[in-house]
């Protein structure tokens, strides 16, 4: 099962693809993989079953603030990626335009994961 280190690696893999020609298509599945992994970490820590697929997720009410923050970031990135790379055809131009927002969320997620790693 995914670990915090895997999640951190997957963030780097999303960042790597930003400038490539096939960026939007490849990034879409990398983001899905990242969200899925993060949700597994969150669900495991909260003692609930992890979703099988990337989705909007709500941390259980008794979860720590760190887990709530991480879940919020997952949801934010999930929503953003669906607008940037919609089901019909991911667009390089829109991907490029929305990249800064996504990058900021990814950086925040990296920070949240590092904090979680330090305290776990």
């Amino acid at each position: 099962m995914p670990t915090i280190d895997h999640c951190l690696y997957q963030i780097r893999r999303v960042l790597e693809v930003a400038d490539g020609h096939e960026a939007a298509y490849v990034a879409r599945s990398r983001i899905g993989r990242l969200i899925n992994s993060c949700l597994h970490i969150t669900a495991k820590a909260a003692g609930v079953r992890a979703p099988d697929f990337p989705c909007r997720f709500q941390a259980p009410p008794y979860s720590s603030q760190q887990l709530v923050d991480l879940t919020t970031l997952c949801n934010q990135i999930y929503d953003l990626s669906r607008t940037l790379a919609q089901p019909s055809e991911p667009l390089e131009a829109r991907w490029t335009a929305g990249w800064q927002d996504l990058r900021a969320s990814l950086m925040a997620m990296e920070h949240a994961l590092l904090e979680l790693k330090a305290t776990s």
């Binding site: 099962m1 995914p2 670990t3 895997h6 690696y9 893999r13 693809v17 490539g20 096939e22 298509y25 490849v26 599945s29 990398r30 899905g32 993989r33 899925n36 992994s37 597994h40 992890a50 099988d52 697929f53 990337p54």
Partner: peptide, 19 residues
């Protein structure tokens, strides 16, 4: 590239359903 990512994920304890 996506196929290569999936193959790589196998070594990282991936979530099989998603892959």
């Amino acid at each position: 590239s996506v196929l290569s990512d999936v193959k790589e994920s196998i070594d990282f304890g991936c979530v099989v359903h998603y892959e």
